[in-house]
């Protein structure tokens, strides 16, 4: 139990680190990658749903705490993404990197669309501007960074499989 709490705290601080310092360091012209989506995706891909769902919820809530105006909204959308990825993972083989990339792109599109639509009360005039100026660049940047992260995770997974002689 203590180890689980410790692991969760480590994850939580990793999330806050990504949302603060890493976000600032990687920001280009005010656009930073959405580390939240990448982390939620990794959690949903790498753990069973009993662990994935509560962890995703907690992580999403911590990410949301950064901006109290939209507290809850990001949590709900990210949690929904975690549930969807968990479900997909149970029915489709998504061990390969390309499949994970499709999931990442889909997740980020869903997040940007749902979050921005709900946060802006479906005001399509504002939404089109936000989508073009913020969401689309964020999506591209997140996919690029996500590819690197997922590729590293995939490599680590393959090494682990080889080490255990399961390949």
């Amino acid at each position: 139990m203590v180890i689980r709490i410790f692991k969760f705290l480590l994850l939580a601080y990793l999330v806050t680190f990504s949302q603060t310092i890493l976000s600032n360091l990687t920001s280009i012209l005010g656009i930073a990658p959405n580390f939240g989506t990448i982390i939620i995706l990794l959690i949903a891909l790498r753990t069973e749903y009993q662990v994935a769902l509560p962890t995703s919820f907690a992580v999403a809530l911590i990410i949301d705490a950064l901006s109290p105006e939209t507290l809850g909204l990001g949590t709900a959308v990210r949690f929904a993404i975690a549930v969807a990825v968990s479900e997909i993972r149970q029915h489709i083989d998504i061990e390969q990197l390309p499949a994970q990339m499709y999931l990442l792109i889909g997740s980020e599109i869903c997040f940007q669309t749902l979050f921005q639509a709900l946060a802006n009360s479906f005001d399509f005039g504002t939404l089109s501007t936000i989508y073009l100026e913020v969401s689309l660049p964020t999506l591209v940047y997140t996919v690029v960074v996500g590819f690197v992260v997922l590729a590293m995770a995939d490599l680590e997974f393959k090494i682990e499989v080889k080490r255990r002689g399961l390949g």
């Binding site: 705490a65 949590t75 709900a76 949690f79």
Partner: peptide, 29 residues
């Protein structure tokens, strides 16, 4: 629960949201 709780949080007033968010900010951010 994971969907209803955050949506309830979203429905709160800004000062109430801040009240909820502040401890998380203090601890993690």
């Amino acid at each position: 629960a994971g969907l209803i709780v955050p949506l309830l949080l979203f429905a709160l007033q800004l000062d109430q949201k801040t009240f909820v968010a502040r401890p998380l900010q203090e601890v993690f951010y």
